[in-house]
């Protein structure tokens, strides 16, 4: 089993930070439990993360306890999720993960995942002349 503070592991780091935050405003007035069953290379469950959300307060453990939603996911995909390299909803539709139980819990949980690493939120303005030129080219 991995140590939650293991240096350099994005999954451990992600859950450690989420647990440290204690209260997540985007989860306010929401309550749900989730368990991530993480598959190793051989398809066996080598690692578990249990997330409890009570009215926006978050607690993380490694317990193999029951949960409203049980997500089964290969380790590389979970790593991609918690670093924003893949989108949780897309991954669900694509079959990269399975979710047994409450889909609502999964949808709630994905709100605390980061955006793609390259996203800046910025874009250069486009002039009217450029828009007109593009249109006449089309």
């Amino acid at each position: 089993m991995n140590d939650a503070t293991e240096f350099g592991d994005p999954i451990s780091t992600f859950f450690a930070e989420l647990g440290k935050a204690g209260h997540v405003p985007t989860f306010e007035r929401n309550s749900a439990t989730m368990r991530f069953d993480v598959e190793d290379d051989g398809g066996r469950i080598g690692e578990r993360w249990h997330v409890t959300v009570r009215g926006g307060d978050v607690a993380i453990s490694r317990r193999n306890a029951s949960a409203d939603a049980v997500v089964r996911i290969p380790r590389p995909y979970l790593e991609a999720l918690v670093t924003g390299r893949i989108n949780a909803t897309a991954a669900y539709l694509r079959g990269l993960l399975t979710c047994a139980g409450s889909t609502a819990a999964l949808i709630m949980f994905q709100r605390c995942l980061p955006g793609p690493p390259g996203s800046t939120g910025r874009v250069a303005p486009i002039s009217s002349a450029a828009v007109m030129a593009e249109r006449s080219a089309a």
Partner: peptide, 15 residues
């Protein structure tokens, strides 16, 4: 509200 944006994602124009 369930799907409200929470992060910067340029591909999805999410904020």
């Amino acid at each position: 509200a369930e799907r409200q944006g929470t992060r910067i994602d340029d591909f999805r124009d999410e904020d």
